[in-house]
Design a protein around this nucleic acid. Structure first.
Length: 643
DNA sequence: CTTAGGG
DNA sequence: CCCTAAG
């Protein structure tokens, strides 16, 4: 009988879960912006290729010189134990900065705050972070600007540092507009480095970053991702991704997954479903961007552009092992390496909130390469490299996996995702996702009769990919699995989801890697029509985030007032700031609450919901079941009145 | 996009 | 939570 009048406005906020950036996904009127970056295609692999080549060359030329690269401690010195005698390690520090020059849409300020990151192309500068790792001996840096980024100006810098005498390279890649300027710096014995410049496309330009930079530095940002800058960014740390590549006979990594593509949809798909899916695939925040992109596609870029990119910085060290020996490769290729990667903790600088991850290794999507038996190992290597490049050619996305589950919500903090200083980082992994065209085998002409079957089976590239013919274009999901050993909290990455392809989706195409017999020099390239826009869906179920009591309370209150059914309004009212709670979620929660309230306490699971709340749930449910709550009624507070 | 329900 | 059919 007491009339309980409450002020609901915002009243629940206090109850709400950890703050979540505002940007209610369901705002009906959002300004749409067009994204500009449709395709920031990164040709990171250019780098890799360069690195690979380098490695190969060195490998070939040098045989036993290097000692194991693990210096011991550094983040990099990882493989000490299992290391083979001469593992090739390439430590690649990748810094990617996306800079989008002026596409700032005032209106959308929130989302797009992109930070341009100044990147230093200077190899030396970059190295510094890794200095620990470096034995100081040599460095090779490759700076590449790729032209892949068509519309978006992004600058991407990848830096690879050579860890050991010969195997580690420092590669820096800068992407600006359309030029690609890979520059490789080779180190010379004296520690001096010579710089080689490769002109990939047109003119070389020194990598100059135009970006506006600010504080940010780093990060592995792939143009594709959009993220807004949140306050939490790490100040001056640049997120670096270190990739170590080592040639190890035993480890195999490439996996090109041929999976069903049933669920895959091109990002660019114009279908509604695709659209919807897209949305689902990404965190609410990103959703907007996606949406914009979508529209962009629909209307040829009418308006603004999206500029966001992730800005969260992290340091990540990834290592990848490549097998040098073909034979070995074949053998190994076959088994999936499911556990080859782990991350070791990187050096912690004392940035309090920085999380530094050193990824010891990661898996590359399944690759499919076919090479004639008569081919040389060198060409095989090249073929593999090409395949890698092909993968990298696509847009790469980084996904974060915690305890086997992919964390899709980029807005979540590491803590929320279960990544904290205390947690065992072993459960944390990164995945590389790319939309890659599948690489299809080129059936070659020559296989030795006797071995056909075998060859087939032992194809260099891993399991399962049997080409398109059989299962259709396999999505590539590159996955890096890693185990982290340590990190600290607070950064979020943006990774997954945003697949932005601007290119015209063309039908699926398959890329193929062919190795011309005997022609070691020519890398068989992967034609891979870029259009192949088979996107891989990396969608994963959102991680479960149980409703807290306070959230339940907020929900109950909102429903009491608004009635069950007006979920959007409920969401706005009580969870306007909780971007991770969609109205569908609220509706579902209500459903479960009603159910929960109707069962015995013993049958309930999870965090117990106060009985009083459950009682209110029942009352409200009963009430609204009879009174149509659906109407837009402005002030229906009948239920309230009863209380 | 929202709702409403089933899975 | 996901997925979808219906508005």
């Amino acid at each position: 009988m007491v009339l309980k009048k409450r002020i609901y406005d915002g009243g629940f906020h206090g109850l709400l879960p950890p703050v979540i950036p505002k940007a209610p996904r369901s705002l009906r009127k959002r300004c749409l912006r067009n994204k500009s970056s449709a395709d920031g295609e990164i040709s990171g692999f250019e780098l890799l290729a360069a690195v690979a080549d380098k490695l190969l060359q060195e490998q070939e030329s040098e045989s036993s010189t290097s000692s194991v690269g693990s210096k011991g401690k550094g983040p990099i010195g990882i493989h000490e134990e299992g290391a083979k005698h001469e593992p090739l390690e390439v430590n690649v520090d990748v810094k990617v900065n996306s800079v989008i020059p002026d596409h700032h849409d005032p209106a959308s300020g929130a989302e797009s705050e992109l930070v341009a990151q100044p990147t230093n192309l200077d190899p030396r500068l970059k190295e510094s972070p890794h200095s620990e790792n470096d034995s100081g001996s040599d460095h090779a840096s490759i700076v590449t600007n790729s032209g892949f980024v068509k519309k978006v100006n992004t600058s991407l810098i990848m830096e690879a540092i050579e860890d050991k005498p010969r195997n580690m390279y420092d590669v820096s890649v800068g992407y600006n507009r359309d030029e690609i300027h890979p520059v490789a710096v080779e180190k010379q014995s004296g520690g001096l480095t010579s710089v080689k410049t490769y002109n990939v496309k047109d003119g070389l330009k020194p990598c100059v970053h135009t970006g506006v930079s600010n504080k940010s530095y780093t990060s592995a940002d792939l143009p594709y991702y959009k993220d807004r800058v949140r306050g939490a960014c790490l100040p001056r740390d640049r997120g670096n991704v270190n990739i170590n590549i080592r040639d190890d006979d035993d480890e195999k990594y490439f996996r090109y997954n041929n999976r069903n593509n049933t669920r895959l949809r091109a990002f660019g798909s114009r279908s509604r479903a695709g659209y919807r899916r897209m949305r689902k695939m990404m965190p609410s925040r990103y959703w907007k961007v996606a949406r914009k992109l979508h529209e962009y596609e629909l209307q040829n870029g009418t308006s603004g552009r999206v500029k966001s990119f992730y800005h969260k910085r992290k340091k990540i060290c990834m290592r990848e092992w490549f097998q040098a020996d073909a034979a070995v490769k074949r053998r190994k290729l076959f088994h999936n390496s499911s556990k080859n990667s782990y991350i070791k903790e990187a050096s912690n600088e004392s940035m309090s909130n920085l999380v530094k991850f050193s990824i010891k290794s990661f898996k590359v999507p399944e690759l499919y390469v076919e090479v004639p038996e008569t081919e040389t190992v060198g060409s095989l290597k090249r073929s593999v490299m090409e395949a890698v490049k092909a993968i990298l050619h696509g847009k790469l996305h980084v996904g974060v996996v915690v305890q086997g589950k992919k964390v899709r919500d980029d807005n979540r903090t590491l803590q929320q995702s279960g990544i904290s200083q205390n947690c065992n980082l072993e459960t944390v992994g990164f995945t590389l996702e790319s939309s890659l065209p599948e690489v299809s085998p080129f059936l070659a002409r020559e296989e030795t009769p006797s071995c056909n079957a075998q060859q087939w089976l032992s194809r260099p590239i891993i399991d399962g990919c049997f080409s398109s013919s059989s299962s259709g274009p396999p999505p590539l999901a590159t996955s890096l699995d890693n185990h982290l050993e340590k990190n600290e909290e607070s950064t979020t990455f943006a990774a997954e989801g945003t697949e932005v392809m601007t290119q015209e989706p063309v039908e699926d195409s398959k890329a193929l890697v062919v190795v011309p017999p005997l022609d070691a020099e020519v890398l068989s390239v992967v034609p891979f029509s870029e259009k192949s826009s088979k996107r891989y869906e990396f969608s994963q179920r959102r991680t479960r985030r149980p409703f807290s009591v306070s959230e339940v309370e907020a929900l109950v209150e909102a429903v009491e007032i608004l009635g069950a059914g007006r979920w959007r309004d409920v969401k706005m009212r009580a969870f306007g700031d909780a971007n991770h709670r969609t109205y569908v979620d609220l509706k579902d929660k209500w459903k479960t609450l009603v159910h929960t309230a109707s069962i015995s306490p013993q049958q309930r699971r999870g965090e117990p919901v106060p009985q009083n709340l459950l009682d209110r749930v029942l009352v409200a449910h009963a009430y609204w079941s009879q009174h149509q709550a659906k109407q837009p009624a402005k002030n229906q507070k009948p239920l309230e009145a009863q209380m």
